[in-house]
Amino acid sequence: MQRRTFLLAGTAALLLPLPAIADSPGRAMLYKNPQCSCCEGYAAYLRENGFEVDVKATNDLAEISRKAGVPEDLEGCHTMFIDGYVIDGHVPVKVVRKLLSEKPAIAGITLPGMPMGSPGMVGTKTGTFTIYSVTKDGKPPAVYATE
């Protein structure tokens, strides 16, 4: 009887939906300047919101962003790669999740600069954050989201 119960339970487990962990985002790789501490704050923010984040210090951050297609005038503080997308700067997790769920045909998104009050940054948010798309086809970036 125990064998039958075990087999039935095992079969049921295979047929039931996977737990919420199956819906969790993939592992992210965040490249940052070795002297930058706000990037560590952004990585901690992502971890607090369920992301797995590896952080790698580099002196080639501008080159990494350029190769990912991020225009120089729209570069953020750090460059992250997750699930085939580039995410540059302190992009709020709500927008990151939007990107990962919608899966648009773009290279990624960017929040230029280091806006005060953005995730991982100190200070109070004083205005709307404009997050731009990073295109794959050479077209100019467009507004992807505002937050």
Rank of each mutant, 00 (worst) to 15 (best):
A9C: 10
N59R: 12
E52W: 01
L61S: 00
L111P: 00
I109Q: 02
E75N: 13
H90W: 10
P19F: 04
G10V: 10
R66P: 01
G50Y: 14
G117K: 10
G123A: 09
K98H: 12
F6S: 14
T135W: 02
T135N: 15
G108L: 06
K139N: 13
G84W: 11
K139D: 06
L16A: 13
M80V: 02
G127T: 14
D83M: 04
T128I: 15
T110C: 05
G50E: 08
M116E: 15
H90R: 08
A145K: 06
M116V: 15
R27N: 04
R97K: 15
L99E: 14
K67Y: 04
R4C: 10
P104H: 05
L111T: 11
K56T: 15
T79I: 09
Y42D: 06
N59T: 14
F6N: 08
I106H: 05
M1N: 09
G123E: 07
C38L: 10
V122Y: 08
L100W: 07
T5G: 01
F51V: 03
T146D: 09
M29H: 12
P19M: 05
A22L: 08
G26M: 05
A62M: 13
G76W: 05
H90E: 00
T135Y: 06
G84N: 09
G41T: 06
L111W: 04
T135R: 11
D23S: 12
L100M: 11
L100N: 11
P104R: 12
P92W: 08
L7Y: 15
L14A: 12
A142G: 09
G120R: 06
Y132A: 04
A145S: 15
A9T: 13
A22D: 09
V53E: 01
S65E: 13
R97P: 02
K56A: 08
C38Y: 10
P19Q: 07
L8K: 14
S65H: 13
V122H: 09
M114S: 08
L14M: 15
L18N: 05
Q35M: 11
M1P: 08
I131N: 00
Q35Y: 13
E52Y: 01
L8S: 10
L61Y: 05
P19L: 04
M80T: 08
K32Y: 11
Y132C: 00
V91S: 00
T128A: 07
L7N: 12
G113V: 02
D88L: 07
Y85A: 02
K67E: 15
D54W: 01
E147T: 13
M116L: 14
L99K: 07
S101T: 14
G120T: 07
L15G: 09
L99N: 03
L100P: 06
I109S: 00
S24Q: 13
K32P: 02
T126L: 15
T126A: 11
P17K: 14
A57M: 08
A12I: 14
N49T: 03
G123R: 10
P141K: 08
M80R: 01
G76F: 01
